[in-house]
């Protein structure tokens, strides 16, 4: 969608006889698209994915003995909070596609819960609980990418 919009602007600008400088043009496009609801959903989904990967990397490191517990638990709490924020933003976006949006919101909610659970488990040094949370996290992450793919799939 961004690509077609870009093409349209390039055409429009060249039509008035200006030769657009590409970086500038990209910036203009960014401003124009930044506030659209589907972009907000996309942006927040990406943030959620990044936070999820952070959580899973720090968990792996903790299990391998590389990351100290205190640090791991703090990082997980922080990632959990980022996920909760992203979830709230996805939920409140005025998306043209309420069903896909609900799927995303749910997936991010599950992720957030799993990460917070892992944080508590790490704090208590409960290894089996951590591994449980890790499985939850993996399942929810898979959920997120399916919902994401569905949401942004080309519509007929």
């Amino acid at each position: 969608m961004a690509a077609t919009l870009q093409a349209r602007i390039v055409n429009a600008v060249t039509a008035v006889g200006l030769r657009p400088d590409r970086p500038c043009l990209l910036l203009i496009i960014f401003v124009l698209t930044a506030c659209s609801p589907s972009d907000q959903v996309e942006q927040q989904s990406k943030t959620a994915a990044s936070a999820t990967q952070t959580a899973s990397l720090v968990l792996e490191s903790w299990i391998a003995g590389g990351a100290p517990s205190e640090y791991t638990s703090r990082t997980l709490q922080s990632a959990g909070k980022a996920l909760a924020d992203a979830g709230a933003q996805i939920q409140s976006a005025k998306s043209p596609e309420p069903s896909g949006q609900a799927g995303l919101t749910m997936a991010v909610g599950r992720l957030s819960a799993a990460v917070i659970r892992a944080a508590t488990a790490v704090q208590n040094g409960n290894r089996s609980e951590v591994e449980h949370a890790q499985q939850d996290l993996r399942a929810a992450a898979a959920d997120l990418s399916t919902s994401y793919a569905k949401y942004f799939a080309p519509k007929s």
């Binding site: 943030t47 994915a49 952070t54 590389g66 990351a67 100290p68 703090r74 990632a79």
Partner: peptide, 23 residues
């Protein structure tokens, strides 16, 4: 490579070196 594309939390920074050198 681990899919962490946004570094907006300083807790993420030590993760750069842990997978290489462990603790």
């Amino acid at each position: 490579a681990h899919g962490i594309e946004q570094v907006d939390d300083y807790h993420q920074l030590p993760l750069m070196l842990i997978p290489i050198f462990g603790f």
